[in-house]
Design a protein around this nucleic acid. Structure first.
Lengths: 328, 328
DNA sequence: CTGTTAGCGCTTTCAC
DNA sequence: GTGAAAGCGCTAACAG
């Protein structure tokens, strides 16, 4: 590989000035004669010129980068949102750099710092829930720094952090589910970690809809395996269980089945999120649909919005009834 | 937001020269006295200094960016690989920018051009399969350009393109599956699009293992819905069907079930990839495991390797037998 | 319309 | 050890 051609090379080849070349190749307001215009284009093509984005960013004092920080891209909840972010970024010609934060809020802080160095236009933080007060504080600081450096911040699914927020109507969706399962009297709830506002909202909404408290509450990790392990703690005579996420519900169903429990004959199961695959489970899972891709897209739009007061966008949810809760 | 502090600001605040400040904050070989070192660090901290990555890239003539191009991040096959790429990138302090190419090879070309402008260190292209000869040509050209600009190129799951390649042992895995299903005599194969080398390798391997040709061959789209639609074309007396991807198999199972066929009692089903969720389908899906995350990680390593001749890394596969093919 | 000329913020010789 | 100064490739006034 030889040295990449620069704008200067193109200008020289075309016999015009640097400025002119810049104007036809990148400048917005075109005031270049057709003749020169054509010559520059030809030269650029001939040399396989490709503008150096770094240099442009430096000179323009702005980049086309957006950071997307999420727990785990392999989790369908996150990848669904990511997909929406990517689609929305495309037409704006934005590049999306993605970072797995794992369960660790400090990883998010580190990514945020890197994005700050990158002078990213915005950062979208998806569900980096934490139970650690101090870590939460550090995260908020990291966000403040990012924002102070001129970046826009959007959080998805996690309220209470600086910046804009996109959040599903967790309480409403869970409420509808509670109403739907109201006739069951031996109910269990399998919940993700306590501290998460999302989890609390879903449980509260569910209880309100149910009209009476659940009989059993099991707390588990926010993962497929967490749900699987929780299955062991569900009383055998339970008639319905609400799981605070589909991914957990998937594991729970597997665990329940291993115990010989039939779904929904012996026990009804409902999840939350409507991750794509749950409609293909057998029996298909009743759940509360979140418009994942749309949430991602909304987040990106907020990220592009003019600076302003912190906004909160609530997206509606929808109860999706499937076989897993159908009375025999 | 006020203007971001520059290295100059830090240097001034610390009462040292620009060069010294640069050396302690970013330079590799440290030859700065402890006293100055401390002062610079203190100043940087006080000002919340964050080096401008763009400027650094320009001065150093190198970036820490890697591009990851894939069909659809919401598809578990791709997100599994992406997850591996991200984990591997982390320790190297590389930023990963991700692009959904959809089914469109020209989208990949466009992304590649953008990455070239970004002066990305490398690009990893995952399974951007195409059936269009001309588009394939354009893609190869795009890759050549990217490489000519000094980027390294790695393709995952798709041989025959310039650059390094990570590819699973498709034929071997499918062969093992064929051997396993050898006793079935009324076999159907549900295949993704014809032209894909991946698909052809899997089918060829399967047939070789089977020892006899399948009775029915259905071609479908490489998606859940493609599999679902294919279900309608499977003869009712088929005893086993091999689907060339798990995502398709998921749809196929749903479709088969809707037709009243029981799995595995009436018909055995096997997939390919071992995407996480298929073990939780009911019945759990027999499949050929691909080490998705590892494939992603290997790709990133290749991307970091010194320039050299095009390498091909073949990763082993493993037959995973589950309930979906278990004889009653 | 076109060209000149400062920078953008940082790294890196090259002297001291 | 430390600093001065010359770029890296491009944009954006500012003159013609």
């Amino acid at each position: 590989m030889t040295r990449q051609p620069t704008l200067n090379d193109v200008a020289t080849a075309a016999g015009v000035s640097l400025a002119t070349a810049s104007r036809v190749l990148n400048g917005s307001d075109r005031k270049v004669s057709p003749a020169l215009h054509a010559r520059v284009l030809a030269a650029a093509r001939a040399l396989h010129y490709s503008a150096n984005a770094q240099a442009q960013a430096l000179a323009r004092r702005s980049t086309a980068l957006v950071g997307l920080l999420l727990h785990d891209i392999a989790d369908p909840y996150f990848s669904g949102i990511a997909s929406g972010v990517l689609s929305a970024a495309e037409p704006h010609n934005l590049r999306v750099v993605i970072g797995n934060t794992g369960a660790d809020p400090d990883a998010a802080v580190a990514h945020l710092a890197a994005l700050r160095g990158e002078r990213a236009r915005a950062a979208i933080l998806v569900g980096s829930r934490t139970t650690d007060r101090a870590a939460e504080r550090r995260l908020a600081d990291g966000i403040d720094q990012f924002v102070a450096a001129g970046g826009r911040m959007v959080c998805v699914g996690q309220p209470g952090l600086p910046g804009d927020t996109v959040i599903p109507d967790n309480a409403g969706g869970a409420h509808a589910l509670g109403v739907y399962l109201r006739d069951h009297d031996r109910i269990a709830v399998v919940a993700g970690p306590d501290r998460l506002r999302t989890v609390r909202d879903r449980i509260a909404g569910f209880r309100a809809g149910l009209g009476h408290p659940e009989r059993t509450l099991v707390t588990a990790e926010f993962s497929r395996d967490g749900g699987y392990r929780a299955a062991a703690e569900i009383p055998a005579d339970t008639t319905a269980v609400f799981v605070t996420s589909d991914v957990m519900a998937t594991g729970l169903c597997a665990g329940l089945r291993e115990r010989g429990l039939r779904i929904p004959e012996d026990i009804a199961v409902a999840g939350f999120d409507d991750v794509p695959v749950v409609r293909d489970l057998f029996p298909a899972l009743t759940t509360v649909r979140l418009p994942l891709a749309e949430m991602g897209a909304r987040a990106l739009e907020l990220a592009l919005a003019e600076d302003g007061p912190d906004r909160v966008v609530t997206v509606p949810t929808e109860l999706v009834i499937r076989a897993s809760t159908r009375r025999p």
